[in-house]
Nucleic acid binder design. Sequence first.
DNA 1: CTGAATCCGGTCTGATACTG
DNA 2: CAGTATCAGACCGGATTCAG
Lengths: 116, 116
Amino acid sequence: MDPQGVPYTPETAAIDVEKALKMLEGRWKLLILFQLFDGGVRRFSELERAIPAVTQKMLAQQLRQLEKDGIVLRRVYPEIPPKVEYSLTRWGQSLCPALDALLTWAGKRPDGGHQT
Amino acid sequence: MDPQGVPYTPETAAIDVEKALKMLEGRWKLLILFQLFDGGVRRFSELERAIPAVTQKMLAQQLRQLEKDGIVLRRVYPEIPPKVEYSLTRWGQSLCPALDALLTWAGKRPDGGHQT
DNA sequence: CTGAATCCGGTCTGATACTG
DNA sequence: CAGTATCAGACCGGATTCAG
């Protein structure tokens, strides 16, 4: 990465960050990632159950985007009945520290005291 | 919040996570947070310059949401010309590890190799 | 300088129904 | 089981204009 001709400036960095963040945008993506985060391999229906509020359409759509972005791996077993498993790609796993930090933060509640 | 009668189950945790994530949703919020992240105190116009693609409307809107959620602190100086500074609240600062991890991840590029 | 208000088109989401 | 198709509405974001 980073071909030697390309200078690394704050501007190009900002663009990279923006593109990377875009991959995580979407109402359900982080929730999906949290399911896969623990090294988990989950089937479509397992994800549906784990995230009750999501619809089939949105789940499928966001999974496909994550797959296209190389974050999630989709493995299809040509069986009857169909079986599809989702997991993190190697690159997706590089997200784990961030996912972990996010989860930690989300677990904290604001103390309700005066903010400074 | 969190009255003592509320049991802590995976389900309620999921709800918390969902609410917390919702606070970060929005095309520009993380980008704004990254500007404030380094302990920075930034004026409105500084944020505008730092995030060229954002419009005044969206910047103001997302800042107000972050303020309402207790993540960002808005300090108004009653001067002419007006001066408004934004910074992270104490709770907002608890996001820093996550922000840092995200930034680290965003800086990595996928290696383009076969994903596993 | 720091915003608020309005208009408007595009995108995203959700409900529902259908398929291999 | 694991999706796709379709439609309608909510929501988002941008341009422009106005205000303290």
